[in-house]
Amino acid sequence: MRAFIGFVALSLIAVGLALALYHIPFGQDRMDVARDYLARSVRDTGAPNVVTGIVVNYRALDTLGEVTVLFSASLGVGMLMTWRSPGGGRPLPGASLIVRRGAGFLFPFILLFGGYIFVHGHLTPGGGFQGGAVIASAFLLLYLGIPGYLLARRPLAAIESLTGITFVAIGIIGLAVGGYFLNNFLPKGSVFSLFSAGVIPILYMVIGLKVGAELAGVVANMIGGGEE
């Protein structure tokens, strides 16, 4: 009975949404803001990737908020779970030779690829969040491939704190130099070169390391703690 009522309610909501969205033309740009960003972004920010220009330059304060939200999520997992070796004392069966060697062999390359993604965030698709997720996946691979592996806790916490401080410090330097928080105070350079777009590559490196440390901490907490 409850399932039937839920189904009827969801159907009503779906019909209402369909009727409301039916009148909006799809695929036409009616947003003046979007057109303005597309026209001015490369000149303003120096980043050929317009998404990066918006996320780290025009909306950099929102990005700081996003990183903070991720930090509190990581903190919540850390309060629920404890940082211990996997299995909680239970002896784990060893992984096969291919998995062990493959994990050790692939780990530096995945780290390098994550670094490439966030360093080139202003030139190619990707950026800090994507690169950080790739780096955390590399540590997850170590946990899966090598039984009994335990990530060192202090360097991770140090990286997370230092990158957070650096983000805010760059913002405050921009406030002192240019008059508003997270102002792009470095020279923009020539478009399409690696060292261009002012503070955007620096900010993306900071975000990438911070997101990578936070997600790796979530994985380490999840895999170690809790009751069987």
């Binding site: 698709p125 990707g126 994507q130 690169g131 997720a133 790739v134 955390a136 996946s137 899966l144 997600l215």
Partner: peptide
């Protein structure tokens, strides 16, 4: 939208499944 596709790939391929 390659940026969003890459975020979905990086999070969805390994991390969420494993967690």
């Amino acid at each position: 939208a390659p940026d969003v596709a890459m975020a979905e790939a990086a999070i969805g391929a390994g991390l969420t499944t494993a967690i």
